[in-house]
Amino acid sequence: MVPISWYLMLAALLFAIGTIGALTRRNGISIFLSIELMLNAANLTLVAYSRQMGDRTGQLIVFFVMAVAAAEAAVGLALFIAVFRSRRTIDVNRLNLMRW
């Protein structure tokens, strides 16, 4: 039997890797991928705790997280397409019109 802490440890690792990606990548899509990674790490934690507590609320939250992730991906990618159309890049450092 695998102890629950192994699952949580793995989730923490994935989350940390995702955070590094989200902070250091400049390509908008790569940042998005890293965020998906972080969401997945959170999902893994939720399912692990749901198993440990014998409560299915955790699983339900994962279900909702997936739906929200789908919505987020659709809107985010649509925004990237729109940005790419006008700026010809999705390098986030170059999207600095709002900065002064």
Binding site: M1, P3, I4, A12, M53
Partner: peptide
């Protein structure tokens, strides 16, 4: 930052022990 986070989580589990899965 990421290493610190993983280290902290690891420390917590190391101190708390590893309870078997229900």
């Amino acid at each position: 930052g990421a290493l610190l986070f993983v280290g902290m989580v690891g420390l917590v589990f190391w101190r708390a022990g590893a309870p078997a899965l229900q």
